[in-house]
């Protein structure tokens, strides 16, 4: 890879929070096994905003679910090094609508703390803080159906931040939003994140979003998902989303990453089309 931004898969010596070695994940299918992830190595230092970009179906969600321990790896090692006793290892912002429709905004945002039996006064303080940060204070008593899609996604983010984990896992949190809301929430996310600088693993298939938010970007291959290239994002923090996008370096970086991603997107579409067609005849 002859590329000015591309960098090596192993990060320089820093305290490592997430460490993945030789990760393999296979799913049993009808007549064969589907390999979702293959020989994946990854080191994420504490406090890094790590972004994963890849074509649809390349195993991004699967990787995140393994990191969240919602799924078992078929082979390989996954380690998350905690920073303090009693702090949850990770909290996930799920792909799609994941806040409980039967709980108010407040009850959703305080969910993790309540399940852990955190004292009520602490819950009030923490949840109050993150609801204020996400502009949801006056909607505390509302149910999700009374909120817009952007507000529901804010609740999901507040729920994860309020839980105060070592690692935040975010699975395309903004992909269902319109352009305006997306830009708005990216800015909000960066501001909230700047307070604590938690380790973040953020999934997206938008290169723009990756460059806007990330410290480091991993591009994945399609079928099976492997690490194809890593990029270090040089932009200083705190960042201004709109200002950043005007810079020529920003455009160059997006272009660079697209070069790596384009083959994979083509490849993934070529690979997924035929089986889908065949399925019509079988059923």
């Amino acid at each position: 890879m002859i590329d000015q931004h591309a960098s090596s898969p192993v990060a320089p010596a820093q305290e490592i929070t997430v460490s993945v070695r030789g990760l393999l994940k296979q799913f049993p299918a009808k007549d064969r096994t589907v390999t979702a992830l293959d020989s994946l190595d990854l080191d994420i230092p504490r406090g890094q905003f790590f972004v994963i970009v890849g074509p649809s179906g390349c195993g991004k969600t699967t990787l995140l679910r393994i990191l969240a321990r919602l799924e078992e790896a078929s082979a390989g090692r996954v380690e998350v090094h905690g920073s303090a006793e009693g702090r949850p290892e990770n909290s996930m912002v799920f792909q799609g609508d994941s806040i409980f429709p039967w709980m108010t905004v407040w009850d959703n945002a305080s969910y993790g703390l309540r399940m852990r039996g955190v004292p009520a006064a602490d819950i009030r303080e923490t949840v109050g803080h993150y609801l204020a940060k996400t502009g949801l204070t006056q909607f505390s008593d509302c149910y999700p159906h009374q909120l817009s899609g952007g507000m529901r996604q804010r609740v999901s983010i507040a729920r994860a931040f309020a839980n105060d984990p070592d690692v935040l896992l975010m699975d395309e949190p903004f992909s269902a939003l319109d352009e305006q809301n997306k830009t708005l929430l990216q800015g909000e996310l960066l501001r909230i994140w700047d307070e604590t600088r938690k380790t973040v693993v953020f999934i997206t298939h938008s290169v723009d979003e990756a460059v806007t938010l990330g410290d480091r970007i991993m591009v994945m291959t399609a079928h099976p998902g492997r690490a194809k290239a890593f990029f270090d994002v040089p932009f200083e923090r705190p960042r201004d989303v709109l200002e950043l996008r005007q810079r020529p370096e920003y455009g160059e970086m997006v272009y660079d990453i697209w070069q790596h991603l384009r083959d994979e997107v083509d490849h993934s579409q070529a690979a997924t089309r035929p089986p889908e067609r065949r399925r019509w005849f079988r059923r």
Binding site: M103, Y111, G112, N163
Partner: peptide
């Protein structure tokens, strides 16, 4: 199923999963 994943990810124990997901979800 996603709601059970959320409960698990946020550390809900068996009885809590029943009280906060299964019961209100089925209500």
């Amino acid at each position: 199923p996603m709601y059970y994943d959320v409960a698990k990810n946020f550390g809900a124990k068996r009885l809590q999963v029943f009280r906060t997901v299964a019961l209100p979800g089925a209500m």
